[in-house]
């Protein structure tokens, strides 16, 4: 992967993001992460969606997954297995199901916006903190995106970023690697994230 090209694409996008969302640096990673996935999958049409619905609208089906599916989800993820050891031991399906509704889109489906929004907590494996703050953080992101100073500029920046990613011809299996590079580049270019 041409890291310098990614570096350039991130810096170009950052210039606009800093201009239109100067105080909401926490949104840079979710937005770029999502544009990255769409870029890799050549979803050029979805930039409007980046603004309208920041996260995938997950179906009611997630709430009605079978117990075995939920247990498997927690048992086969090393971090979750450790964090929810008591619930797993007691087969506390009620608590696990409640946690699943928040954690499955994030860790099961790798929803790119949520992944970016909770990247610090995911890095520190603070899964319960994610559940506690999930709704507030998402509501705040929605509010901030709705009141962006120049929607047109933001969409244009994300579209360009998407096109740059596509032009790099990264293999789809490189998604995780590019995401890691993205985090690294943002960490270098931005001040440490604010605490909630």
């Amino acid at each position: 992967m041409a890291l310098s090209k990614l570096d350039k694409a991130v810096n170009n996008a950052l210039k606009i993001l800093k201009e239109v969302l100067p105080d909401q640096t926490y949104l840079y990673l979710p937005l770029l992460s999502r544009a990255l996935v769409w870029g890799l999958r050549r979803y050029f049409h979805r930039q409007a969606e980046l603004m309208a619905t920041p996260v995938w609208p997950w179906p009611a089906r997630i709430k009605v997954k079978p117990d075995e599916f939920i247990l498997d989800f927690f048992q086969t993820h090393s971090g979750l297995r450790r964090e929810f050891a008591t619930e797993l031991k007691n087969k506390d399906l009620k608590s696990l199901r409640e946690a699943f509704v928040y954690l499955y889109p994030l860790l099961g489906l790798n929803e790119p916006f949520l992944w970016g929004l909770f990247a610090p907590e995911l890095g520190r494996q603070e899964y319960r903190l994610i559940i506690r703050t999930f709704q507030d953080r998402l509501d705040r992101a929605r509010r901030d995106l709705a009141s962006v100073s120049s929607r047109k500029k933001l969409i244009s920046a994300l579209k360009t970023f998407q096109e740059d990613i596509t032009a790099m011809a990264i293999d789809l299996s490189g998604e995780a690697e590019v995401r890691r590079s993205l985090v690294k580049l943002l960490q270098q270019s931005l001040p440490p994230p604010e605490k909630d």
Binding site: E68, P105, L109
Partner: peptide, 19 residues
Amino acid sequence: PTEEIWRDNDRQIIFCFRQ
């Protein structure tokens, strides 16, 4: 129809494989 359903379906395949 959508990327999220596509991914959920892949998860289902993996779940069945494990079971």
